[in-house]
Write a protein that binds this DNA or RNA. Structure first.
Lengths: 243, 243
DNA sequence: CAATGTGAACAGTTTCACAGCT
DNA sequence: AGCTGTGAAACTGTTCACATTG
């Protein structure tokens, strides 16, 4: 057994989630004719510190040139490589309600890299209809007609049906699940689940709105603690303060 | 000035995001006739460790009873109080396309606590139409007709229009923004922004799917490192392993 | 000289272990 | 005896500062 797992050290998850942002911004800059980006500019546009940009980018290899910055095209390609673009992922969506249909039709969600391999729903009213050129099937039907396993499953259905559907997706080969249902899934550890819980997002905002409200007659959370950036949320924030 | 800001110490953001999960689960248990929950059970159902549950809940006050657990009803009420439920938040949605409409119609997203105060879009085709009983307006129109400021703004529009819309929402009073557009917003620090970037979610999953694929002929990321739980994602994961 | 890459300090969360109630 | 509440330890990610390099 030689070295294997050469990828330097496993990239931290927050970094993984920021890479597509850098990629998007850099692509935009490229389109504007810019051929090189500095960590400073990238940070400003992404709402993070320049140091974070450098740490993040260094984890995918040394793509920058000291003194001048990162080559925009190389950067985009480098991020694409780490993110697994280039490959085409077979996606199945379970739940063809409002949200499912909206996702399918949202430009920029299912790009070239994602192939809608199956559209699954349990409602007899929907089975047999076609959305975006793909026929809606029941689970058994889908299982029978799929010749290759799927890679990614998306759950856009009510909470009570989520666990069953997740199990079925795993049965169809999914190793990754994007779950929009407000339910915690119990899956084997090799299956990666990401939760997008819209009602939780609103509730988190409510909580802070509540604090802000209280703050109106007292302390404002962001006054004068840090001279540079507000302590703020965990992720990207308003950039462009000074310079 | 007496004490003020009595809330023990400011609850960490990851905790804030988990509280609604505990609340949801406990509500469900209550409905099933259970009057008391242990951190262990709650953890199992929420896909987190019992210790984390206890730390999380301790940050909103001592609601548990040693020896028997948490009173389910009191727990739900306690979480509701910290999350700012009970109040009604005025929400404006900008962008009445697929996603905007889907959110409005998704049961469980805009609950009693959220009042859809304005529906804004720039398209003349949409202005004047009605969605879920609310008329779609242009921005100026909405600004003129609103008598009270809004609390929360939701952006469901293309990236290129996001910053302008965010500025307008802030102009309408928003201190919290939920941004679905794939764009980083630049907002004053007192405005709390949460990003839900669907294409990034898919890309993150792709990245891990890619690793898993490579792993098929080599190491499986979750083998034998931790005897208890897999290192897994940052948030809730498959629970119910033993016990 | 400008801007990257990175070790070291720092900060925020999670996990552990156990004292303290009931 | 059972289960919470919480300091202390461990860990993970961020920020800092600076040596390094084109």
């Amino acid at each position: 057994m030689i070295d294997r797992s050469a990828r330097r050290k496993q990239i931290p998850e927050p970094t993984i989630a920021r890479l597509p942002i850098y990629q998007r911004i850099t692509t935009e800059l490229l389109r504007g004719g810019q051929t090189t980006v500095s960590s400073d500019q990238l940070g400003r546009l992404a709402g993070v510190t320049a140091a974070k940009v450098r740490k993040d980018l260094s984890s995918i290899g040394s793509l920058g040139t000291r003194g001048s910055g990162y080559d925009a095209a190389a950067l985009v390609a480098g991020i694409a490589a780490t993110m697994g673009a280039g490959e085409t992922w077979r996606v199945a969506i379970v739940g063809v309600g409002n949200l499912g249909r909206a996702l399918i039709n949202t430009r920029g969600f299912l790009t070239r890299s994602y192939n809608l391999a199956a559209l699954i729903d349990s409602s007899p009213d929907l089975i047999g209809t076609t959305v975006a050129g793909v026929a809606v099937q029941g689970v058994e039907e889908a299982a029978a007609s799929l010749d290759e396993p799927i890679d990614i499953g998306i759950l856009t259905l009510p909470a009570h049906a989520a666990q069953t559907a997740a199990d079925q997706l795993i049965g169809l080969g999914a190793h990754s699940i994007l779950n929009f249902a407000p339910a915690v899934l119990s899956c084997p550890p090799e299956v990666r689940v990401r939760y997008v819980d819209l009602s939780i997002e609103l509730q988190v905002l409510s909580h802070y709105a509540r604090s802000a409200e209280a703050g109106r007659g007292g302390l404002l959370s962001s006054v004068g603690i840090q001279p540079t950036t507000a302590p703020g949320s965990a992720d990207a924030r308003g950039a462009a303060r000074r310079s």
